[in-house]
């Protein structure tokens, strides 16, 4: 492997790590500063953990134990150290081992954050991956066909449908889908039925089918529009004319020369969408009663459970960063101009 490629990979890797650290800092700062700006003292913050009935002494001890008197950077540093090295947490009722990566201790739930987050991850991941497969297949093929038959009935119908798909709110389509397919027709299971893949793959897919379709509907519409635009642009390029001038069959021109260039930007967008979707399919998760990360993040934010919020955000940040990294590396594979610059 040439050194330029290696240095490219290393640079991308460093950028990904940097991104995660920066996001964790920002989240930490927001959740540290916001309550304080709203007038909360370390004691009032600690009250949330020990309850209003506690004595002033208990509150102060708890606040101290949680490090609420320390300045921002010390608290962040302690948290970061926990993530990397693991730590021991004094809950007041004894100590809890929190091995790396320790994302903190949720005093509200009385347990470390990491296992909770990891518990939720498969749900969100299953939702995202199934939907992604669906929307890629539907979105790309509709987009390509539309571009190749620009102005035809199919194109106009597909684009009208895509516009509708983009405009429909997901909780609405989700509820409508549930109402029709689960409650009226009874072909799909009702909401809140998640079976882990490892237990029963068929049940897993069956339970997720409706959420997948709902989520994919929105994204397919977006991807169909993107693909169509990209394809139209590419098919107007000079090198497509060259490919035709060589005497290639039109199908080869489209697949080998057109598609490869048209899909390149879509790879980028897909990476970001997928990474983000892991933690942000809140609406879908809520509509279908799926215990995913998005739901957890919303709940934790609502109850000001900083360790939980941070845990979810960090995990999402890691996913986005990894997705970004994969996209960058893929880009280098697809587009030689990136790696040899």
């Amino acid at each position: 492997m040439p050194t330029s490629v290696i240095s490219y990979i290393i640079r991308r890797l460093l950028a990904a790590v940097g991104l995660v650290v920066v996001i964790s800092m920002i989240t930490f700062a927001i959740f540290y500063l916001l309550p304080r700006l709203a007038g909360a003292s370390p004691e009032t913050l600690a009250t949330r953990y020990v309850g209003r009935a506690a004595t002033a002494d208990t509150v102060r001890v708890t606040a101290e134990r949680l490090g609420f008197y320390d300045p921002l950077y010390v608290q962040y540093w302690d948290w970061l150290k926990g993530v990397v090295l693991g730590t021991t947490i004094d809950t007041g009722a004894g100590t809890v081992q929190c091995p790396a990566p320790c994302l903190g201790y949720s005093f509200r739930n009385q347990e470390p954050v990491t296992p909770q987050v990891l518990d939720r991850l498969p749900v969100s991941f299953s939702l995202a991956i199934g939907a992604a497969v669906l929307w890629l297949i539907v979105g790309l093929s509709v987009g390509i066909l539309s571009a190749l038959r620009r102005g035809s009935f199919f194109d106009r119908a597909a684009m009208t449908f895509a516009l509708a798909g983009v405009s429909m709110p997901i909780f609405w389509t989700g509820l409508v889908a549930l109402a029709i397919f689960s409650y009226q027709l009874g072909i799909t299971p009702p909401g809140g039925s998640y079976t882990p893949f490892t237990e029963n793959p068929v049940q897993w897919a069956y339970g997720l089918l409706l959420p997948w379709i709902t989520l994919a509907l929105l994204f397919s519409a977006q991807y169909a529009r993107l693909t169509r635009a990209g394809m139209l642009e590419t098919m107007g390029e000079d090198y497509i004319r060259t490919a035709r001038a060589k005497g290639l069959r039109e199908r080869t021109v489209v697949t080998k020369h057109g598609l490869r260039a048209a899909l390149t930007p879509i790879v980028t967008i897909f990476g970001l969408d997928f990474g983000l979707l892991i933690g942000s399919a809140v609406l879908t998760e809520t509509a279908f009663g799926l215990p995913g990360l998005g739901q957890m993040a919303v709940d934790a934010t609502g109850s000001n459970d900083l360790p939980q919020v941070l845990g979810v955000v960090l995990l999402i940040a890691v996913f986005v960063a990894v997705a970004n990294l994969v996209v960058d590396l893929l880009y280098a594979v697809i587009d030689p101009r990136v790696r040899t610059r």
Partner: peptide, 20 residues
């Protein structure tokens, strides 16, 4: 016949060749 009996070259060879 294209490419075999008749062939063509273009003005801007950078955009006329596939970059990938």
């Amino acid at each position: 016949l294209r490419g075999q009996k008749m062939a063509m070259i273009f003005q801007d060879p950078l955009s006329a060749m596939h970059p990938f």
